[in-house]
Simulated scan of single mutants.
Amino acid sequence: MRTADLRLGERLLATVAAFGLGAVPTALLLVLIEANWPPLHRLDAAAAEQLHTAVRDHPAALTALRVLSEGVWDPLTLRLLVAATVGWLWWRGARRLALWAAATVTASGLIGLAVKAAVARARPALPDPVAHAPGFSFPSGHAMTAATCCAVLLLVFTPVLGRRSLLTARAVAVVSVLGVGFTRVALGVHWVSDVLGGWLLGLALVAATAWAFDGWRRDTGRPVPPPLTEGLEPELARQGPPEPR
């Protein structure tokens, strides 16, 4: 078991180091951005202008978007939700799964900051802006965090949710991820391509670290379930809290 644990650490490091393989779609998107590809440029410009104008003319909609973007779907809110899940997993005895969730979300934040600094893309400069955000634009940190956190939560809780609850959870996750992207563009603090880049990077990272976790299960002789239908650790459904000593 100790050998498998060591291999898990090596696999996680290798997965994060080789993360660029899963980020190829994001790299291609960035090439199109840097080349000012006309279809993408028109999409960015049209979405920013039209959504900004619509929001600026409807104060109630603007307030709702701010509440959703800066409260309900704020990266800190989502990370705290994952942190609570990590604590619950630790209490349940699923400590390797807890470490996987914590490592994935932490890596997401660090990678997002690194890519922002490397690309250094300016945020939209719109007349009469309705919102402001610090830092660079690509990728959207809100979008990347939402994609990462929602995917992590689904992979953790899939084994313990009933069919109807799982469908509801998936619907909430999809609405949250799409909703985050919409609010950031509508508030005029990101381009559509920033949001796409955040989604792609977040999902690529979760896929890479989930592969590493599956490798650890394989090394310990445990079955490797289909993650999308059974989650990363199906035993969680049968696993109770640790017995008091």
Score class of each variant (00 low, 15 high):
165 S>R: 14
16 V>I: 12
10 E>P: 02
174 V>N: 03
222 R>G: 00
187 L>N: 06
233 E>Q: 13
46 A>K: 13
134 P>W: 05
39 P>N: 11
80 L>Q: 06
115 V>D: 09
126 L>Y: 11
72 V>Y: 06
143 A>I: 04
88 W>A: 10
208 A>F: 02
148 T>S: 11
35 A>K: 13
35 A>N: 07
38 P>G: 07
120 A>E: 13
170 R>S: 06
115 V>W: 12
118 A>G: 02
132 H>F: 14
82 V>M: 04
204 A>M: 02
228 L>S: 09
180 V>W: 03
94 A>D: 07
210 A>W: 00
51 L>C: 10
144 M>P: 01
37 W>R: 09
146 A>I: 01
179 G>T: 07
204 A>R: 00
182 F>H: 05
32 L>Y: 04
60 A>S: 11
100 W>Y: 12
30 L>G: 13
73 W>G: 03
23 A>T: 00
177 V>R: 11
194 D>Y: 12
222 R>Y: 06
102 A>E: 08
215 G>A: 15
52 H>S: 03
199 W>T: 02
226 P>M: 08
2 R>M: 11
133 A>P: 10
104 T>V: 04
57 D>N: 14
229 T>I: 09
223 P>G: 01
193 S>N: 06
193 S>P: 04
103 A>C: 10
90 W>M: 09
54 A>I: 06
87 G>V: 00
44 D>A: 04
139 P>G: 10
53 T>M: 02
226 P>H: 14
188 G>L: 06
97 L>R: 03
234 P>T: 00
226 P>F: 08
132 H>L: 13
204 A>N: 00
40 L>P: 15
202 G>F: 12
230 E>F: 11
6 L>R: 11
66 R>V: 04
159 P>W: 11
51 L>Q: 13
44 D>N: 15
132 H>S: 13
194 D>L: 08
220 T>G: 03
34 E>G: 03
188 G>T: 01
111 I>M: 11
146 A>N: 05
210 A>R: 00
41 H>P: 02
219 D>A: 15
234 P>V: 02
209 T>Y: 09
110 L>C: 06
237 A>V: 01
67 V>F: 15
178 L>I: 13
203 L>P: 05
159 P>S: 08
183 T>V: 00
102 A>P: 07
129 P>A: 03
171 A>I: 04
45 A>P: 07
211 W>N: 02
142 H>R: 09
9 G>R: 01
120 A>F: 04
38 P>M: 07
95 R>M: 04
239 Q>F: 01
32 L>H: 05
185 V>S: 12
14 A>R: 15
119 V>H: 05
